[in-house]
């Protein structure tokens, strides 16, 4: 078998291992998908009326706000899910079996690739559930098929990039308890961006940050594709951020993984 075929096979084996572990230990998965659903419902029903009026949209009510909210919640689903990735990577690194893997002739990176693909699949499940709930509570889109495909494609790429970053954060963590610290920032970013309210409604300094942080252009692009709002340069910015985060996360993660193991 060629090196590539072996790498694919080892990654598949590792993926299978991760899926089994999730089935045995589902509590975290449930929690990670639950959080964005709760935020969706809370923002829609508790604040929806007021925030909808503030948007100044066509009808200025809850229905408007739900439409505005969903792209942000979708991104929040992604970042909550990769927080789980960081925790499970950190947990895994403290398992003795990782030391065993390191002494075996396994394709380089297969352990991490297994984590990334597994997490990505988990994120997809979360996205389907969250989007389903969004439709149930009145999310309406005017995107056509091509726009939907583009939106899904961007969300997937962004998820994979963030997952690599989260893997590196999980490897970097000194303990399982601290593994969720860094990724918590990722969960907060949709709030400190255009996820829940337009950036120009934020205080000056924060509005500047919100405008230029990576989640905002992704959220704006998804919003544009699904709801027909203005996209402008956001699409290019979103792709550039995705590539940069993904590359940085990938290189950082591989580097950390080659470091001697923690005891």
């Amino acid at each position: 078998m060629s090196t590539l075929a072996l790498a694919a096979r080892d990654s598949r084996t590792m993926l299978r291992r991760n899926m089994r572990r999730w089935v045995r230990y589902p509590a975290m998965t449930v929690q990670l998908i639950g959080i964005p659903v709760i935020f969706l419902l809370m923002f829609a029903y508790v604040f929806g009326e007021t925030l909808g009026a503030g948007l100044g949209g066509p009808s200025g009510d809850r229905a408007d706000y739900i439409n505005y909210l969903v792209p942000g919640i979708i991104l929040m689903t992604v970042s909550a899910s990769v927080q789980g990735t960081a925790i499970s990577v950190a947990m895994d690194m403290h398992e003795g079996i990782i030391a065993r893997f390191r002494t075996m002739a396994i394709s380089r990176g297969a352990v991490l690739t297994g984590h990334v693909i597994g997490s990505f699949l988990q994120t997809l499940v979360g996205l389907v559930i969250v989007t389903g709930v969004a439709f149930l509570i009145g999310f309406r889109t005017n995107g056509n098929v091509a726009e939907w495909i583009a939106a899904i494609g961007l969300i997937c790429l962004f998820s994979i990039a963030l997952t690599w970053l989260a893997v590196a954060m999980g490897l970097k963590a000194k303990s399982v308890e601290t593994a969720s610290n860094l990724p918590t920032l990722l969960v907060l970013l949709p709030f400190l961006g255009s996820g829940f309210v337009p950036t120009d409604s934020l205080p000056a300094g924060m509005s500047w940050f919100a405008e230029y942080q990576p989640f905002s252009p992704v959220i704006e692009t998804v919003r544009g594709l699904l709801l027909g709002t203005e996209i402008g340069t956001n699409a290019v910015l979103a792709l550039a951020w995705t590539a940069a985060i993904g590359l940085f996360g990938y290189v950082w993660a591989l580097r950390l993984f080659r470091r001697p193991p923690v005891r």
Binding site: R9, T13, R20, R21, R24, E95, G96, I97, F101, T103
Partner: peptide
């Protein structure tokens, strides 16, 4: 790595898999 096997001082098994699955995992790898 291709020529050695290691049983370290500290247990190196996957605690969330069964004993059999641990062995099958090794077989796959």
């Amino acid at each position: 790595r291709g020529a050695i096997g290691v049983t370290g001082q500290f247990s190196a098994v996957d605690n969330l898999l069964t004993g059999e699955e641990n062995l099958l995992l090794m077989a796959d790898l």
